[in-house]
């Protein structure tokens, strides 16, 4: 009797767990994101320490390798510096001419700066899946972060906040398959959408007409359309343009400006600031 009951209970618990697993899929995304970050947050301090240790050793090894290369490059660089110093004098004239335009631009910059500086956050963890590209950062609701805030590194686009916990947040990178960024070519001003592919070093640019003149090396910036991302943030460079006859749009591959595995911190531009900049 007791054994039968135990067997029944074990089988019953298995069915319950299967039902729970399937029902988890039906939880709305904002609630599931909140659950995920709440459960993951106790591990955040340990993740931060581990990340810092890993980065410390990685940087140490990289610096050692760079030191060896640097000695060879030094002589060449000295020659280049001599030539560049001469060229600087030529460029001084051009700089004077552009001074007036720069004054106008700097006034606009002052307006943006007066809104406030972005929050700096350390990267404390990466996604466990091979096909999703997201990172965990160590600031959250307590620091005023909210969903859809823009994340940048040195004025280049990293992604946007997808979930916010009390003291940690998840950032969906621009390389994630669920990411779409309204964008514009810097040179031709043609608009398109930058979508992630799940690869660390490739995105695709969609909806670019086959008649548009796009070349490898062209730069892409955010267009600001839709209001989710601020305008004019550098996204990356075009590395491949395919133009197959039957298609309406070009197949364009983009290399993101940032190597997401090499950065250790990011800046978060709060949504309210972005809206003010747009206004």
């Amino acid at each position: 009797m007791g054994r039968n009951f135990s067997r029944f209970f074990k089988r019953f618990s298995i069915y319950i767990l299967i039902a729970v697993s399937v029902s988890l899929l039906a939880i709305p995304e904002n609630i599931s994101n909140h659950i995920k970050l709440t459960v993951a947050s106790p591990l955040a301090p340990v993740q931060k320490i581990t990340s810092k240790t890993v980065n410390y050793f990685r940087n140490g090894f990289r610096k050692m390798a760079l030191m060896i290369k640097a000695a060879d490059k030094e002589e060449k660089l000295e020659e280049e510096v001599f030539l560049l110093q001469n060229k600087l004098i030529d460029h001084q004239n051009t700089i004077n001419m552009l001074n007036k335009k720069l004054k106008t631009a700097s006034e606009l910059r002052k307006d943006i700066d007066s809104i406030g500086k972005p929050s700096i956050a350390d990267i404390i963890g990466y996604d466990t899946s091979n096909f999703r590209k997201s990172i965990l950062i160590n600031i959250g609701r307590k620091q005023g972060i909210s969903v859809d805030d823009t994340v940048v590194f040195g004025s280049a686009l990293v992604g946007r906040i997808s979930a916010v916990g009390n003291s940690s947040s998840r950032v969906i990178l621009i390389t994630d398959p669920a990411s779409s960024v309204p964008s514009r070519f810097l040179e031709s001003r043609t608009q398109g959408i930058v979508q992630g592919t799940g690869n660390d070093d490739t995105c695709v640019v969609k909806y670019i007409s086959r008649h548009a003149e796009i070349k490898e090396g062209n730069k892409i910036i955010s267009s600001g359309i839709g209001g989710l991302f601020p305008k004019s943030i550098y996204i990356g460079d075009i590395v491949e343009v395919k133009d197959s006859g039957a298609k309406l749009f070009k197949d364009i591959n983009l290399k993101p400006r940032i190597d997401f595995l090499k950065i250790e911190y990011v800046s978060v531009i709060k949504k309210s600031k972005v809206q003010k900049i747009h206004n």
Partner: peptide, 21 residues
């Protein structure tokens, strides 16, 4: 184990758990 992996991934919640089962 599946649920833990789910907690630390951006994917749809529960998907990895179901596949692990």
């Amino acid at each position: 184990i599946g649920l833990t992996k789910d907690f630390f991934s951006a994917g749809p919640f529960g998907l990895i758990t179901v596949i692990f089962v």
